[in-house]
C-alpha cells in the first residue's frame, strides 16, 4: 500500500470574477521511503497541494489517502517546513521546537529532551535560549527543520524551504537535509519537497513531479537514478536538469 495517494485533486479559490482554478485533476502516489520533489513555475498550485496533503485545507474535489485512509482535518503524522520559517518571534529556539510536542501532549521532561536532541541534530547546539530575531536566515530555517523533525513525523512536507536563503547557505542546508534523511536513526523516511529550483530537485529527490501552471496539472513523473551524493559535474545531472526545464518551458 502506498504511503500517500492523491486521487483527482482539484482546487479553486473564490476570486473577484468567479472562481480561480489552481489545481486541476492531480493524481499521484508516494511510496514508503521516497524523497519526492515537486517542481513547477510559480502559480502552479504546488504549495496549495502541500497544504491539502497536510490537511490544512480540504480540496474542492478529489481525495487524499494516507496509508489507505482518507485525510480529514490535520494529519498529525506530517510536519510542515515553511519558506518563511514561520517561527513564533516571542518564543525561544527551544520553545519553538517544543511547539509541536506540546500540542501532542508530550510531558515536559520528555519534551525538553527531544527538543534538545533535534536542536543538536540541526547543529544549533548552544542556541536553545536564543530568539528567532537573533538568528541568521539559515539558522532560522534550521529551527524550522528541528521543529518539524521533533514531532518525528512519518512524512516531512517542505514548502520551498531554501528559497528565502542565500545560495551558499542553501547548499549547506541541502547537504544536511540529505544526511538527516539518510541517517537510519532518524524516524523520517519520506519527504515531499516543493521547489521552483530545478537543480535542487535533481540533487535531492528520488522522483520529480513536474507541474504546469494555470491550473496546475501533472506533466511528468521522473525517476532520478543518479547515485548520491550528487553534484552538477556528475554525468547525467545537467541532462536531467535540462529535461525538467524543457518540460516546464513547453507548457508555459
Amino acid at each position: 500500500m502506498a504511503l500517500l495517494e492523491l486521487k483527482h485533486i482539484s482546487q479553486s479559490f473564490p476570486h473577484a470574477k468567479g472562481v480561480l482554478p489552481v489545481i486541476h485533476d492531480l493524481s499521484f502516489t508516494v511510496e514508503e521511503g521516497e524523497f519526492v520533489a515537486v517542481v513547477g513555475p510559480s502559480g502552479c498550485g504546488k504549495s496549495t497541494m502541500l497544504r491539502i496533503v497536510n490537511g490544512l485545507m480540504p480540496p474542492t474535489s478529489g481525495q487524499v489517502l494516507y496509508k489507505g485512509r482518507q485525510v480529514d482535518g490535520i494529519n498529525l503524522e506530517c510536519a510542515l517546513v515553511f519558506q518563511s520559517f514561520a517561527l513564533m518571534p516571542w518564543l525561544s529556539v527551544k520553545a519553538n521546537v517544543e511547539l509541536g510536542l506540546e500540542a501532542r501532549g508530550v510531558a515536559p521532561v520528555e519534551r525538553e529532551k527531544r527538543a534538545g536532541v533535534y536542536i543538536d541534530k540541526v547543529g544549533l547546539d548552544g542556541f536553545e535560549e536564543a530568539y528567532p530575531r537573533e538568528l541568521s536566515g539559515g539558522m532560522k530555517q534550521r529551527v524550522g527543520l528541528a521543529r518539524a523533525l521533533a514531532v518525528e513525523p512519518q512524512l516531512l512536507l517542505m514548502d520551498e524551504p531554501f528559497s528565502a536563503l542565500d545560495a551558499l547557505t542553501a547548499i549547506t542546508l541541502r547537504e544536511e537535509l540529505l544526511d538527516l534523511w539518510q541517517d537510519k536513526s532518524m524516524p523520517v523516511h519520506n519527504i515531499i519537497l516543493v521547489t521552483h529550483i530545478i537543480e535542487e530537485a535533481v540533487e535531492l529527490a528520488d522522483r520529480i513531479l513536474v507541474l504546469s501552471t494555470g491550473p496546475g496539472r501533472l506533466v511528468a513523473d521522473l525517476k532520478v537514478e543518479l547515485p548520491r551524493p550528487r553534484n552538477r559535474r556528475q554525468e547525467g545531472f545537467n541532462a536531467l536538469t535540462d529535461k525538467v526545464f524543457s518540460l516546464i518551458e513547453e507548457r508555459a
Binding site: 490535520i74 510542515l80 514561520a86 511547539l99 509541536g100
Partner: peptide, 14 residues
C-alpha cells in the same frame, strides 16, 4: 501573519 496561523494549525495546537 498567515504562515504563523498555518504553522500552529499544522502542528495541531489546541
Amino acid at each position: 501573519p498567515a504562515d504563523l496561523k498555518e504553522a500552529v494549525r499544522s502542528f495541531g495546537l489546541s
